[in-house]
Amino acid sequence: MILFVRDLTVIDFSYLCAKRGMLGESYIVDVELDGKLDDISMVLDFSLVKKQIKQAIDQLLDHKLAVPTLADGLSLTLAQQQQLLKFDSARGQINMAAPTEAVALIETATINIDSITSFLQHHIMQLMPANVAKLTITLRPEPISGFYYHYSHGLKKHDGNCQRIAHGHRSTIQIFTDGMLSLRLNKYWSERWEDIYLGTAEDLCQASELKFINPATDTDICFAYQAQQGWFELTMPASHCEIIATDTTVECLAEYIVAELEKIDPSKAYKVVAYEGVGKGAIAQSA
């Protein structure tokens, strides 16, 4: 007997890629449980599927940085309950120090749907009752017919896991000019923020202020902040970043895009529909 749950949850996270550097991702999660009926004639109660498996996924990967531990160019160190990493990519070197719970260490050379799926299935299957013989997790990106970008960021003021300095999303963007969808502007912003790290200006610091890591070059951008979950540091190649004067919540990002558009042509009325992952986001419009 197979029990299934479609659209169980959405995972939002970032990961390290040898070619693309750090990028945000969002996957919709479907689950199937293959097993015998238990004493209440179920494979597993739907409420437990939704609660236990979603909770496990959140703890294992959601709002974390997924790190391929077998990748070339990766160095990992533990120091004072901090996970320190150095990663060489084609876009430059990335360095991060963060509490261990902000990182998902995955035994693979490459982070992709297959390696993430195997990681989740291995750990979550151990939580299943004896009557469940097989767990199948299916990850799938949201089908997007328009334009989108992958971005990573950190929100130090957030009470939950969004405060982690390197988590992200794959997000749709829709920009309207004078009430009409602008393909040109949507294309421009999806390319401008392709695999971007969006940093907050007040989180910038000098290399000398970092406690655990060092930038690879003098032009790398350094970030550091204290949040409820602990101390976070990050260095990124300058070409991998865009700095925002405000926080990088989706509300602020939508307003930022409108403001940037108005600088170029203030005579037009703009509407920006910015998504944060799947099915949620913010709308900002010209005043």
Rank of each mutant, 00 (worst) to 15 (best):
K268W: 01
G279F: 06
A56H: 10
A104T: 04
L210C: 05
E209D: 15
S286N: 04
K54I: 04
V103Y: 08
K268N: 13
D30Q: 09
V49H: 00
L60Q: 13
A133F: 07
S115D: 04
W231K: 03
V250Y: 09
F223Q: 07
F212G: 11
A245P: 13
V272E: 03
Q228E: 11
I106G: 06
M22T: 15
I113E: 14
S171Y: 00
K271H: 03
F176S: 13
K157D: 04
H153N: 09
A287P: 13
I196A: 08
Y188P: 06
I137P: 03
E202P: 13
H63D: 06
D38W: 09
Q229K: 08
L70D: 11
Q174P: 01
D218T: 12
A18K: 12
I137C: 01
V272A: 04
T235L: 12
E242L: 07
G146S: 09
E276G: 05
E107Q: 14
S115G: 03
T77C: 05
I283D: 02
V49Q: 00
G73D: 08
E242T: 15
G279A: 03
Q226A: 13
F223M: 09
P266L: 01
S208M: 05
L139T: 13
D159N: 14
L105T: 11
Y27S: 04
Y188S: 11
S14F: 11
A109G: 15
C252D: 07
Y27R: 08
D7K: 06
L127G: 13
D72Q: 09
L78H: 08
E251R: 07
A97Y: 11
S208Y: 03
I257F: 01
V132A: 00
I144D: 01
L70C: 13
L84K: 07
S208Q: 15
S152Q: 03
A66S: 11
G146E: 08
G281M: 02
A216K: 06
L37W: 12
H240Q: 15
Q228S: 06
D39V: 15
P266V: 00
E107G: 09
Q83C: 15
N95M: 03
Y275H: 14
Y15T: 11
T217F: 07
E255M: 02
G199F: 03
S41K: 12
